[in-house]
Amino acid sequence: MRSNVLQYDLTAPATLEAVLEILAYEPGEYTLIAGGTEIMVALAAGRLAAKKLVSINHLQELRFIAVTPEAITIGSGTTFTDLRKHPVIQSDFPLLKQAASWTGSIANQNRATLGGNIVNASPAADTPPALLACEATLTLVSKRGTRTMPYTDFHLGYKKTALAPDELLHSIHIKRNLNGYIPYTRKVGTRNAQAISKVALAALCLTAEGVVKDIRIGAASLQDRPARLTATEQALLNQPITPATIAAARAALLTETHPIDDIRSTAQYRAHVAANLLEEFLLSL
């Protein structure tokens, strides 16, 4: 433990309302902690800058999965284990179930929350590509009120989000309108478990008579944030899957990805493998 815990302040209000009260009273002063699988690592390493923490880990009002015939709404405090075990996520959202199974260890999955994964905003996070492909919408709450936004608009830059200082991610909403879509997801990590992505794709494609009618591709570790690959999607839309289309899609992907060299991999490898994953998907259609 490289941090001195005496220098940290942790409060655990009994209700969501009380949490929003604190955030509104001193906007930006407090950092929320849910499962703690990111923040506790930073604390142990002595690099947790935020000194004031508000725990929302115990708030059952954020831990729910509500299902209607049209949609599913997932509370931000829902754990990865909750996601993996839920029958509708298993049946309707295999991309999300798969992504949840990749994250950390079983112990991590028992604590880590979907909301935390989104708000932490790592470009390499496991669930964002799936949520992007599913066109999720987010509900943000504050003492000022509630607003919803498409998830595609949430990530603004490296670890930068649309969340206001007094706001909290309340829930994630996904429509159950993916019938007929062919799913694809693959994570290329540093190893098969307990790994951070070098590159990952999650995609959904609707075809009719061999022609792409709709395609959505979410990606990790290819930009400074989790991102939809819209140029690649455009290159594929209304096209038949031919070698020429695949080549055009690979080329489009390279125009909109800006991976980096880091401790885990190289930019060249990331870009090339992302294109390979895309090709693998297209050849499976």
Partner: peptide
């Protein structure tokens, strides 16, 4: 799997997240 990333003689990946030893899944 296991690579020590040296930067000016300092092991840059001195944490188990980035010093990749195989797991049972590997």
């Amino acid at each position: 799997y296991e690579k020590c990333v040296w930067q000016q003689g300092h092991m840059a990946n001195n944490q188990m997240t980035n010093y990749i030893m195989p797991t049972s899944a590997d």
